[in-house]
Design a protein around this nucleic acid. Structure first.
Lengths: 147, 147
DNA sequence: TAATCAAATGCAACACAATTGCATTTGAAT
DNA sequence: ATTCAAATGCAATTGTGTTGCATTTGATTA
């Protein structure tokens, strides 16, 4: 029996798990990011959270990232984008070893989790902790519109 | 017979090739970035170029990137880092399909060009233009100091 | 080598992202 | 209901990057 991952109940459970108080701003951030196929940019989040102070949003994003609830990825413009981690993320040790696809047209960042990445080699001396494959190009939507 | 890639002469040639005027600030940017194993962060560049206006630096970095002379990579903090492209880069079409390694200790970004990346698959509909593998962990230097 | 002119630089001002310190509020525990 | 650390809100600041315009400079050509 699978747990639902995008219900208000799940969000409260998530905050409990990480010993974080269940506050309105935090629950709002989670619900804003859920149900989105793509990561949410900081500017988008800020306008979505219009009744919440900017500083509060930054602090929420920071704790969420530290706790492994969300992860951050920078798009082609250097803008921070945030997405809820699907699984395997722990405090101070993310396992977001998936593919980030950044569309050059709509600028959306897709987190393609179900892709298993191939192994790769590093020169001696480098100790890898985590990695992501970052690809750019056209997403399905923009690819269609192109024709 | 191989051409040297980090001499003042080579830099002038590089600017000629891309129809850019050989100016003092531009040559300085190139010499600052050359001979470095790692990419140079924007803040570092700015303090190294202390006699050059900030705006000029930004404009130089932008044309160099457009022309394919350098490429930009964001580190874990979202700070822009710049490195001279080794080869294969053309205007508006970079081929920086190499590994970027970001050390979590010293924050240095290594561009490991000689590594050939494995192939990977994408869900249908995505049209890939370019990609980089972005890894985090400890670089050889920090890895040594750790023990 | 002097004149010319677009290209490049410098300066002032601005826009936006992100942080810090401190006062106030609030969720959870007693 | 009371309490208190945790979380939020507010004011101010720092840092990154951009825009418009005046000035300077490198390459061209006379």
């Amino acid at each position: 029996m699978k747990q639902p991952t995008n219900t208000p109940n799940h969000f409260e459970h998530l905050l409990d798990q990480h010993h974080l108080k269940k506050t309105a701003p935090r629950l709002k951030v989670l619900s804003m990011m859920a149900d989105k196929e793509t990561a949410t940019s900081q500017p988008d989040l800020e306008s979505l959270m219009n009744d919440v102070d900017r500083v509060t949003l930054y602090r929420i994003l920071n704790v969420f990232e530290e706790k492994g609830i969300i992860h951050k990825v920078f798009d082609l413009n250097g803008t921070a984008n945030y997405a809820i981690c699907t699984s395997n993320c722990q405090e101070h040790r993310h396992h977001d070893e998936h593919l980030h696809f950044n569309c050059t047209q709509c600028n959306n960042v897709y987190c393609l989790n179900d892709l298993n990445l191939p192994a790769f080699d590093l020169p001696p001396g480098f100790k890898v902790n985590g990695f992501t494959l970052y690809a750019t190009g056209l997403c399905p939507d923009c690819s269609k519109k192109q024709n």
